[in-house]
C-alpha cells in the first residue's frame, strides 16, 4: 500500500484515463458478476471434466494419444516374410494397393493383452469382407502362431516384423495399432489401442464406407 501512496505523492493528480469509482447504480450488478464468475467457471470446468471422463471411458479421448505423422501420406515401403506354419502369405507395401477397396493393417503381438481384447472385432471385420493385413510385432514366431491357432486368424496376409524396424517406418509406438489405407495406398486413419465395438461403429465403419 505504501508504494501506491508514494506514487500518489509523485503524481498527485489522478491519471487522466483513470475511471473514477463506478457509479453507485452499477455497483450491485458488478458484485453479482464477481460472485457469478467463479460459479460459472466451476460449472464450465465440471462440464469439461465430465466430457473428458466420458471420452476416457469410450476410448475417443486418449491423453497419451499422439496423432500419426503419416495420415494423408502413402504407406511406407516394406517387405515382411510370412509366418512359418500358417498358410497366409507375407506382406509387402505393394499388397496394400489394388485391392479395389480400403484395407486395414493391424500390428499385434501375442504378448499384448489389448490385442486379445480387439481380436473379436478383427474377426468380425474379416467376416464382413474387410481385407485385414497383420504384422506380428516383436514377437517370437512360435508365440504368434500359438496365439493365432488359439484365437483364429483374421488376417488375409501376415508379415513378421521381429526386429520392429518396419513398425518404426509406420510411426508405431505400441501395439495394437491399426491403420486404414485407401484404394490408392494412402494412409487415412490410425488407431492406437484396441479396436472396440464403439470404435468400429463410430469411427471405422463410416471411414470404410467413405473410402469404399
Amino acid at each position: 500500500m505504501s508504494t501506491v501512496g508514494d506514487r500518489g505523492a509523485a503524481a498527485p493528480d489522478t491519471a487522466p484515463g483513470a475511471a473514477p469509482e463506478a457509479p453507485s447504480g452499477a455497483a450491485p450488478s458488478r458484485r453479482r458478476l464477481l460472485l457469478l464468475a467463479p460459479f460459472a467457471a466451476a460449472v464450465a470446468a465440471g462440464a469439461g471434466f465430465y466430457a473428458m471422463l466420458r471420452g476416457l471411458g469410450s476410448g475417443s479421448y486418449d491423453p497419451k494419444g499422439v496423432p500419426s505423422a503419416l495420415i494423408g501420406q502413402p504407406a511406407p515401403d516394406f517387405t515382411l516374410p510370412p509366418l512359418e506354419g500358417t498358410d497366409r502369405p507375407g506382406l509387402a507395401a505393394t499388397d496394400l494397393r489394388g485391392q479395389g477397396r480400403p484395407v486395414l493393417v493391424n500390428f499385434f503381438a501375442s504378448w499384448c493383452v489389448p490385442c486379445l481384447i480387439e481380436h473379436p472385432q478383427l474377426t468380425r471385420l474379416a467376416r464382413e469382407g474387410v481385407p485385414i493385413f497383420g504384422v506380428a510385432y516383436k514377437d517370437k514366431p512360435a508365440d504368434s502362431l500359438a496365439f493365432l491357432q488359439r484365437h483364429g486368424t483374421p488376417y488375409a496376409r501376415l508379415g513378421v516384423d521381429q526386429p520392429g524396424r518396419v513398425a518404426i517406418d509406420w510411426g508405431l509406438y505400441g501395439v495394437p495399432e491399426t491403420y486404414l489405407i485407401d484404394r490408392q495406398g494412402i494412409i487415412r486413419w490410425r488407431w492406437a489401442g484396441p479396436l472396440t465395438e464403439d470404435t468400429l461403429s463410430q469411427e471405422l465403419q463410416p471411414l470404410l464406407r467413405r473410402y469404399a
Binding site: 501506491v4 506514487r7 500518489g8 505523492a9 498527485p12 489522478t14 483513470a18 469509482e21
Partner: peptide, 16 residues
C-alpha cells in the same frame, strides 16, 4: 489494479 487504487483515493496517497 494500480489505476483503480489511485482512482479510489482522490488527491493521491500519503501527502493527501
Amino acid at each position: 489494479m494500480r489505476r483503480r487504487q489511485r482512482a479510489a483515493m482522490p488527491g493521491g496517497g500519503a501527502e493527501a
